[in-house]
Design a binder for these strands. Structure first.
Lengths: 349, 349
DNA sequence: TTCGCCATCTGGATCGATTCAGTCAGCTCG
DNA sequence: CGAGCTGACTGAATCGATCCAGATGGCGAA
């Protein structure tokens, strides 16, 4: 019982007494042969159980795989459960689908600066959210196109929003009613593990990621405008944008003695803000009377239940679409700055 | 300025005066050549900017791509934003990562029974959540392995939970305190668009998907046990498991005249249940006093805010891990039935 | 009738690796 | 000393398509 060798285009050609070129054309360029012959070929293919040209052989020959890889900053486990990253991927997938391309998912964390060999067959790479190690970039196929999202890679197109302006805007809004004790809750300020209180004076220095740094700068500018010394504003850092990781830090903040507990939390993500809302409510704090909270991202969940979140909406799906369009060459490979929108909800009217 | 042809293994071999076989071995089988020569080859490769064997050529020759495709029932946009599907994908990704495989995402909806050629290079397929059209199955490469999740494909291994038993259990729990007007909110009972009220008598007949049908059967059995005629229990159908699609249906349910409004909602997903919680609270209904609600899935969000959801937890991540292990051959290709756990929360004590 | 011309079809090189069946030199051992 | 073995390396077939640069034949125009 030897497995019958798979049927190839060549078998089909021999069987029909035509050349392989013609069979290939039957599948790829209907205009290159007579309809009658094409029908005969397709019919025979069906009869023999030939499933069409082999994808690998085609890719080897043509040099294109119709696969686009997205390299995610965090683990896939995290990214797939994060609303912002998921929306981004949706946008990417949406455009790829319409163009007959498929989506390969990679995480830069898992790969430790390597990318699995199988990924290098991708025609293009979308790097999302975090600067990949130089060695990873060096390993990408030379001819592959590259788009980064939310940060710059020298000489490559980027899709991003103006984080500093957005944070400036939302902080200005929040500060119109002067808080007695404002505080900032950062997201992933450093690559180093650090979950909890940090000193403001060092925050900007250690902010390795442009995205966090820009947001922080926006907050600080608004504070300074209102005569508040940013160095005096307490700051906490959240390592990962999940309820589980946020919760203990938020608890710590809320556990501050009454005269030290912040009455305004400028959070760098909706996930953080929502966690704060939930935990504050559990303690009987009134929002916004006792504690005002702002978020960032504008995820749908923030608008489901009262109080609606005050936040900055960025259209992550559109970000994904834009990145995909650039990668596929539907759009010139230029950097693209998407707009954001201040959304005033009940959590900080 | 012609682009300098990319460097190949053959160039490297010529440059060094060794055979291509030896260069290949330097990358793939260090034991097949002397360490000194290997170093020389690797050094020269670095010098020439050779990035290692080409993935496509390798895949063509070896017949394996180290890519695993997941075919999702719904659109990628939906799946990536659905907690259950995302958790499932996390589990898959987690196992694939450890084995140096990568994850390709496809949606059966988009592909309309076709799969893009580029996908057919996958070594294995995980079909998630919905019976793909026979034509799609027929188009998969013959040698590829296949695992289905949450439904059976004849002769292929499946990963699933006992939906009927789980729904029997949670409905039994809910019915211990007899409701005056129980109701069922289905998820995707039919492939046809249908969002809203449906007649119970036809529900089982039109339930095309085994998963929905099993859950419904579980509910019905429990109702019958408690002397309630399932045919008299009103039913609604939800087309898509999102807040936006759920909300109008839930509104309609809650808009029933007071003497017809259900006081127990058996929901087929946590998303539906959470939507019901949110909208009921907005109307000032007390949970569970005025309305008891049960879910299904056990997503994390259900436990964040009060009232905690009464639900059946299924470990979607483990489902993903199991499917991936089977596809990779780490586990014998046998169907696997995962356990569920009744979680009693405040929404239906 | 002859000359293009067009539509249709063909041969074969090519993409970039892997791998099997050897070759060859050097070493051991009786 | 020579048989046999081992480790290191090689040559060339192969994977399954794509796509040039032609070949062929039929047909209309001159």
């Amino acid at each position: 019982m030897s497995t019958p060798r798979r049927i190839t285009l060549k078998d089909l050609a021999r069987e029909l007494g035509v050349s392989t070129a013609t069979v290939s054309n039957a599948f790829n360029r209907p205009d290159q042969l007579s309809p009658a012959l094409r029908e005969r070929i397709l019919g025979e293919a069906r009869r023999l159980g030939y499933r069409g040209p082999d994808a690998m052989a085609r890719s080897l020959r043509t040099g294109r795989s119709r696969i686009i890889a997205v390299i995610l900053a965090e683990s896939l486990t995290y990214s797939l459960n994060d609303a912002v990253a998921s929306e981004f991927l949706s946008g990417v997938a949406e455009v790829l689908d319409t163009q007959g391309h498929t989506l390969l998912l990679l995480s830069s964390r898992q790969t430790q600066g390597q990318i699995p060999g199988s990924a290098s067959m991708a025609d293009g790479f979308i790097v999302y959210g975090l600067m990949p190690s130089p060695s990873l970039l060096g390993r990408l196929p030379a001819q592959a196109s590259l788009v980064s999202v939310d940060f710059d890679i020298a000489g490559r197109p980027t899709v991003h929003v103006d984080n500093e302006a957005a944070c400036l805007a939302i902080a200005r809004h929040a500060l119109r009613m002067p808080p007695r004790r404002p505080a900032i809750v950062n997201l992933r300020l450093t690559a180093e593990p650090c979950n909890g209180r940090i000193t403001p004076s060092h925050a900007l220095l250690v902010a390795e990621q442009t995205i966090t740094r820009s947001r922080l700068t926006g907050f600080h500018r608004a504070l300074a405008e209102h005569g508040v010394d940013p160095a005096g504003v307490p700051m906490w850092n959240i390592e990962e944008n999940t309820f589980e990781v946020c919760a203990p830090v938020i608890e710590a903040i809320l556990d501050s003695p009454d005269d030290e507990r912040p009455d305004l939390l400028l959070c760098m993500s909706d996930r953080i803000a929502l966690t704060a809302v939930t935990l504050a409510e559990q303690r009987g704090l009134r929002i916004p009377e006792d504690l005002r909270i702002t978020g960032f991202d504008g995820i749908a969940e923030g608008q489901y239940r009262a109080p609606h979140l005050t936040t900055v909406r960025q259209d992550s799906t559109e970000k994904g679409r834009t990145a995909a369009r650039i990668i596929l060459g539907l759009t010139p490979p230029a950097s693209s700055l998407l707009t954001t929108e201040l959304m005033v909800g009940d959590s900080c009217p």
